[in-house]
Design a protein around this nucleic acid. Structure first.
Lengths: 341, 341
DNA sequence: CCGCCGATCGGAAACGTTTACGGCTATCGA
DNA sequence: TCGATAGCCGTAAACGTTTCCGATCGGCGG
């Protein structure tokens, strides 16, 4: 069942059918209705490849996410949430979604760019991918519109969407301060990653604003994984002026710190309050439940799609679109910081 | 840069270029090499929509996953792992991947089938979607090849890929038996879901094989979430002949049972051993770390792709392909069952 | 020397859609 | 009454590939 067959049965030409189905004005309401009815009766579905071919646009955008961490068996915890958010936001905007696969080492670096050309993709959304991905560099350097969530790469038509990491960290410290804590330490992520650096900056800003002293040993660089948080916690809790609270830049590290406290015979949140970042699934499952700074996955997804549409529609590179979109976070207070919860 | 331009620069016809790039035999090695070189020099990438149009096949398969649980803020824990596995398995088989979006309620039920026709998709992989999805029923009833992972739906060209839930459960009980436990209870998932029913069957089979008695109160139906496991644990541990071990059909419920033990003043695994199912991220983060039956995500993905290819290539519906592919599981022994780990 | 054959290539017709262009009818103002 | 105009529609040319038919050209056996 193609458009010619449908045209024949409707008693009109293919041009009219096309116009009717695409809501063009030059068709009378009567014939439009008849064509519509016949189309759904016959189960006609327009052939997208053919449309793409002649229209030179596919209404499709590509999606890339990190595969580096997967190789280590470690998934970024909220990737799935982002994925869902992006998916629904894109389908709300009437876009189709194609998954791009990061090639193996033997393949060439231009794989993503090639895929964009081959499929006439109109843009790409990149999820939490390390900025040193060479395959991604090629893409970002091209004129393909790109929106990166929780990742930092720059290029001629690129926009970054990210949580307000600094404000989130600041809110966490503020929360601990209001609970009476004055000795607040932090465990950061790898500081070459922008989110980790921003969370540290927020922590430092809050401390300075609140007049808290930050001895150098209160800042430990971790790697976002459990063990680094546990090690940092162990060291911090063994020190003479041990902190009464720890802000960890990732939930896994926060849970590690709680383990360290338990090993040291300390209770949480009584002897040590802990706040994490990200609100991974496990945060609600551990005991005590982990207070944490939750990212607005849906908001991130919607903003990314919106920003990408801006890039696509913009004929000239507007300076206003080049600057990053910052999405607010939300502090979830649970048992690891507030007693009796 | 299209094939005509490339042909002009190579001094051959478009037909020859097409043959060269598609590894057809009727081209001399010399011209093939020249065309190849020129193509990569000029950055030529064939236009997939045009190829799809004329070849009547897109080398693309669709991917559907459940959106029901997401609405509740609950993600299926290993969906992401499956996604990655399917993605790499498909790209290894030189397929492209398109994400299908489950439509909102106002949309029609044929959305998935329509998407398949529109994009010329050659098959669909369905991930952990409830079998009562109407949109999916339409798809399964059509002649579109479908492979469902961890879900059960039947249709004319459908194959199911699933973990060996029964054997996994059996191994868990066996493990507990070997540790000396004789009173082993279980918390199941919703029994109308095949995986939950199969895990219960495996539990029952192991108990009967090992000569363990299963009083009716030892079997509790949960909902895979934390609270149901905690409630079941609380009830079981308050009973006079309380079990010394619990096999939970899901990790969240297993963690809930551990919480119940802690509330009852019991130690894990000393007073109560617990084994879960799925190996979600949190299983390695809680304390004690959760023993669990891990699913082979990569294996599931590879098997699904393989089965789907079989369905696609098969001209006639082969009976051998209709029966489900069962992927073995792996028992991970951690601190919640074995002391001193 | 002739016909045949294999290897290699080109011409041109599809594939299903959109859209520029033009044609027809009816209405309307002058 | 006539030209202009608006509304509606059809014809046909693209879009970039693949592939069916031939065509050409050596080589080779008879």
């Amino acid at each position: 069942m193609n458009i010619r067959e449908l045209a024949r049965r409707s008693g009109v030409s293919t041009a009219t059918v096309s116009r009717a189905l695409n809501d063009r004005a030059e068709v009378s309401e009567a014939t439009r209705a008849k064509i519509r009815r016949l189309a759904s009766e016959l189960g006609y579905a327009p052939n997208e490849p053919a449309r793409t071919l002649v229209r030179r646009r596919s209404d499709t955008i590509g999606l890339v996410w990190d595969s580096g961490q997967e190789a280590m068996g470690q998934h970024n915890p909220f990737l799935l949430g982002l994925l869902s958010a992006v998916r629904t936001a894109l389908s709300d905007a009437d876009y189709h979604l194609m998954l791009l696969t990061t090639p193996g080492a033997e393949d060439q670096d231009g794989a993503h760019l090639q895929a964009v050309q081959r499929h006439n993709l109109e843009g790409v959304i990149v999820l939490t991918t390390p900025p040193d991905d060479r395959c991604l560099r090629v893409l970002a350097d091209s004129t393909v519109p790109c929106a990166g969530i929780d990742t930092a790469f720059t290029g001629p038509r690129t926009v970054r969407v990210s949580s307000d990491n600094a404000a989130g960290a600041e809110a966490a410290v503020q929360h601990l301060y209001e609970l009476g804590h004055r000795r607040i330490a932090t465990v950061t992520g790898p500081l070459h990653l922008p989110p980790a650096a921003e969370r540290l900056a927020g922590y430092l800003r809050a401390c300075s604003r609140l007049g808290l002293s930050v001895p150098p040993e209160y800042v430990t660089e971790g790697d976002f994984f459990l063990a680094s948080g546990e090690a940092a916690g162990k060291r911090l809790l063994a020190a003479p002026d041990r902190p009464t609270a720890i802000f960890a830049a990732g939930d896994q590290m926060a849970i590690g710190a709680i383990h360290a406290a338990a090993d040291a015979g300390l209770t949480v949140p009584g002897d040590l309050a802990v706040v994490g970042f990200d609100d991974i699934d496990a945060a609600a499952l551990v005991r005590p439940a982990l207070s944490t700074v939750a990212q607005d996955q849906r908001g991130l997804g919607v903003a990314a799609v919106e920003a990408l549409r801006g890039l696509i529609d913009a004929t000239t590179v507007d300076a206003a679109q080049a600057q990053p979109r910052i999405i607010p976070t939300r502090l979830l207070i649970r048992g690891s910081s507030r007693p009796g919860v």
